[in-house]
């Protein structure tokens, strides 16, 4: 792994202390990462899921996307998953796990400030926002 990828993983382990963090090397300097037991908020079932993603060899120049969550992810109110950004029937690279893909690009990604940990927080934030939007629509 490159030093920047190792640093990105260390920041994730620090920011998500208490959650299991698994990594698999991509073989070219990057890493596949899975963070366990994250709370997605009340809009989704199961409410808790792992989230996985790739840190490419050119991280942090490269955006961290897409993310992956558990394969049986569904909305709590039974409505179809919003596609995009959610897309079921996918696989988490590096771990060969069936997964639901969460495709959230960051057009304003700035390698000087953005990190994989911050991006994961934004992804979790997006899941939480869906509950707020569902309530507002109701």
């Amino acid at each position: 792994m490159t030093p920047d990828v190792e640093k990105g993983i260390a920041e994730i382990q620090h920011a998500f202390a208490g959650h299991g963090v698994e990594t698999v090397e991509t073989g070219d300097g990057g890493a596949y990462v899975i963070v366990a037991d994250l709370d997605l908020g009340p809009a989704f079932v199961p409410r808790s899921s792992w989230i996985g993603f790739t840190l490419p060899y050119n991280y942090p120049l490269a955006d961290v996307y897409p993310h992956f969550a558990c394969p049986d992810l569904a909305t709590a109110d039974g409505t179809p998953l919003p596609t995009p950004p959610l897309n079921s029937g996918q696989s988490m690279p590096g771990f060969n796990r069936p997964a639901t893909m969460v495709s959230r690009r960051s057009p304003r990604w700035n390698p000087a400030h953005d990190t994989a940990a911050l991006k994961l927080m934004r992804i979790i934030g997006w899941f939480a926002e869906q509950a707020a939007q569902t309530r507002a629509a109701a």
């Binding site: 490419p56 120049l61 490269a62 960051s106």
Partner: peptide, 16 residues
Amino acid sequence: WCNELIRPDKLTDESL
């Protein structure tokens, strides 16, 4: 980079 002529999402795509 300063002139937004490198897209971080494209770097991700191309790295896969």
